[in-house]
Design a binder for these strands. Structure first.
Length: 720
DNA sequence: CCTTCCACTTAGGAAAAAGGGC
DNA sequence: GCCCTTTTTCCTAAGTGGAAGG
């Protein structure tokens, strides 16, 4: 209960402060000298970061759950309204007026020629290939020539969309056809001999109620079913779905016995594991048939993979961290909940027999194929394309180009925020320090959140309680100790020496504040981004993460790779560079369950190898002696053989040791996220080409698909 | 201005598949 | 081929940020 109240208080404080207080914006007589130069390299190495996840405070039961949401669901109808517009005016190929004009303003800025021209000069060699001519022709004929193109697209010799010109920012496609989402199978009732018990008595439940019970029973051996919040949410949602009779009888969760059902599912999964090869094969074929049918769409005549063509099955919501909604029932999605988006003249996907779609629309300013409202938060969810698609790939490319533009601009931005540190206005100082954190520490923006979700923060939402100021610590001056839960309730823990002026400002910011007050009470992400956007079009807080990540990778690779390294060593270097980024971005993972064990195994292996080397060396010595005492062809050969053996073993040892280091350093670091989302793939591709490392060693199949554009266009000279 | 909505990217864990030693 | 580990893929939650609405 306490937590809830604190949150409430916090909100009130912030909003109270808002109008009057903010306008007055305390005048500061900034007599502070601007402090010394900023080194780009003084980023913390992050070594002390990884204390793993934190289990914060006591669980909180969400009593008045419906209160907040009911209102907003009303407003959500506006969604309908807007898209209805689109439908009305979507008569011809052209974009709906209203949507288009609204978005145009923004587009103008962004459509600056920068994108492709720059790419081409820095990225790939510019050649007028035949495919390019083709591409141009394609574009022209796109509207009327769809039929022909469809066939070509299905043959799918990989669409090199990156060789075509940049496409419109507003209009995402001109034709889109798909099969609609795949619905998960219906619920299969339990066999008669498997029963739910209440208060010791067997009880037959209605199918709907029983299904919900199975959700809970399946997760019984998971830790969160023991949490009070989880149980409360579950029980209250469950009761809602019970029949009257059931509700009358079932009064307490603690009297419910799911163990037989639980056991049943454990056995079932065991069975699945023990299936024969043939059975598994059948299943596999079934899955690929499904993929074939539902997994692709036809976008502008090209067959593109869909990211998530299967609708999310019903179940119990499992938020991350201390989520107030954990355990709530996630309902089964009905066709009547689903909106379809496709082109007007395409074959409209058929809803399951006896059902209809909520709506079918033809809005080509969005990229999604289907959407529905998820019932836990009442937010929309979408079916969208796979990262290998043009729509995603082009956006990704664009993202890295924006980050590269920041690279050119970052010095002046740094100058500016340093000036802000001594501004007379509180809000400028706060903004200056916030941007400094975002730049230096790659913090996330930190939008405001409602309290229907876990209490996590980013830069702008940091609270006083999340930092500790140390005048000096461990021989360093002006150290800020950060300790907070970020996205996904991953703990960010870091001790960072900052510049004196920042330190002073922080002291000022926390003066007369309670721990649960906002550290930056005069700024929001919106204002911050507005400022950034004025510095550089397209610049927002998140660009800094991309920029810093890619810059770090590039620097580290340049630093860590030398000629004459073996491929394995180069890969270790790459991983280390990747790791530096992951640490910067605080990408963590739970230590693998078997980490200690497998580490030990590896060490044993290493030990054995060492012994083998000793042995081989001894033999080598003997051979040497023998050769010296009585030189002969045979003895010489033997000597060479032994030398080679020693050498071979040493190499193997080295490889193992490399592996050991790599694994040890990677214990709680997740490399995947940065690789997939923050590192300009052209850096990696260029590095591979330059150092003769096969790109497959760096990117697996999925990654190669996603980054096909970069792999194809990048030469070894690319620098971020 | 603030709040809400919407669409999109970014995220870690679970499940499934692949790899490798016997 | 089997068993165990490691890697990949799948899943969907949780962010960001632009725009609408009031």
């Amino acid at each position: 209960m306490k937590l809830e109240k604190e949150k409430q208080d916090r909100r009130e404080k912030k909003s109270k402060r808002s109008s009057k207080d903010r306008e007055k914006d305390s005048e500061l007589n900034g007599k502070h000298k601007p402090s010394s130069k900023m080194k780009q390299s003084d980023r913390p190495s992050g070594v002390s970061r990884n204390d793993g996840q934190q289990k914060p405070g006591s669980p909180e039961i969400n009593k008045n759950k419906e209160k907040t949401r009911s209102k907003s669901s009303k407003q959500r109808h506006s969604h309908k309204q807007r898209t209805a517009d689109v439908k009305l005016c979507g008569e011809d190929e052209n974009l709906c007026e209203s949507v288009q004009t609204r978005k145009k303003k923004r587009v103008k800025d962004e459509e600056s020629p920068e994108k492709h021209d720059k790419n081409q000069s820095s990225g790939r060699k510019r050649k007028k290939t035949s495919s390019e001519h083709k591409a141009e022709k394609n574009k022209k004929t796109k509207k009327d020539g769809d039929q022909k193109e469809k066939k070509k697209g299905e043959e799918s010799d990989k669409w090199k969309w990156w060789e075509e010109g940049k496409s419109s920012d507003t209009q995402k496609w001109s034709s889109l056809e798909h099969k609609g989402p795949y619905f998960p199978p219906e619920y299969e009732p339990l066999p008669d001999n498997i029963c739910f018990y209440y208060d010791g008595q067997p009880m037959k439940l209605s199918p709907a109620t029983e299904e919900i019970v199975t959700f809970y029973a399946k997760m019984l051996d998971h830790e969160y079913t023991s949490k009070e919040v989880f149980q409360c949410n579950f029980f209250s949602d469950w009761k809602e779905e019970m029949t009257k009779e059931e509700r009358k009888l079932i009064k307490m969760l603690s009297k419910c016995d799911f163990s037989q059902i639980h056991k049943y599912f454990v056995e079932k999964s065991e069975e699945r594991k023990n299936m024969t090869k043939e059975e598994k094969q059948v299943l596999k074929e079934e899955a690929s048939r499904l993929m074939e049918e539902y997994g692709f769409c036809l976008l502008d005549g090209h067959r593109e993979k869909i990211g998530n063509f299967k609708l999310e099955p019903p179940g119990l919501f499992r938020g991350r961290g201390e989520h107030p909604k954990m355990g709530k029932l996630k309902k089964r999605i009905q066709p009547e909940d689903v909106t379809i988006n496709c082109s007007q003249d395409s074959k409209i996907p058929a809803p399951p027999a006896g059902h209809r779609w909520k709506r079918v629309q033809h809005d080509n300013t969005v990229t999604w194929l289907a959407s529905w409202l998820e019932n836990i938060h009442g937010r929309p969810k979408y079916i969208m394309l796979n990262p290998s698609s043009k729509l995603k790939g082009e956006k990704d490319w664009q993202k890295y180009e924006t980050a590269r533009r920041l690279k050119m601009k970052v010095d002046s931005i740094r100058k500016q925020y340093r000036r802000d540190w001594t501004s007379r206005e509180m809000k400028s100082r706060q903004r200056g320090v916030a941007i400094y954190f975002i730049d230096k520490l790659a913090l996330r923006a930190g939008n405001e959140k409602d309290d229907e979700s876990a209490d996590t923060v980013g830069c702008c939402s940091l609270r006083v309680e999340h930092i500790t100021l140390h005048r000096r610590l461990d021989g360093q001056e002006h150290v800020v100790e950060f300790d907070f839960l970020g996205k996904d309730s991953i703990r960010y823990y870091n001790k960072v020496p900052v510049e004196k002026q920042v330190f002073k400002n922080l002291k000022l910011f926390i003066k007369h504040k309670d721990p649960e007050d906002d550290l930056f009470d005069r700024i929001t992400t919106v204002k911050l981004n507005k400022t950034l956007n004025e510095c550089m079009p397209g610049l927002t807080a998140k660009v800094f993460r991309t920029f810093n990540a890619s810059t770090t990778l590039q620097d580290q690779l340049n630093k860590l790779t030398t000629e004459g390294m073996t491929v394995e060593e180069k890969i270790l270097s790459y991983n280390r560079a990747n790791r530096a980024v992951a640490i910067l971005c605080n990408h963590q993972r739970a230590a693998p369950k078997t980490f200690e064990k497998s580490m030990q195994l590896l060490q044993e292996k290493i030990q054995k190898k060492k012994e083998q080397i000793e042995e081989a060396k001894k033999e080598l010595k003997e051979a040497k002696k023998a050769h010296k005492d009585a030189p002969s062809d045979k003895s010489k050969k033997l000597l060479e053989k032994k030398e080679k053996a020693v050498q071979r073993l040493s190499e193997q040892l080295k490889k193992l040791q490399l592996q050991e280091t790599d694994r040890e350093e990677n214990k709680v670091i997740a490399l995947g996220t940065s690789k997939l989302n923050y590192l300009d793939p052209r850096i990696s591709v260029a590095w591979c080409k330059k150092h003769q490392v096969p790109v497959e060693k760096i990117y697996n199949k999925t990654q190669r698909d996603k980054f096909a554009w970069a792999i194809d266009m990048t030469d070894e000279n690319f620098q971020f």
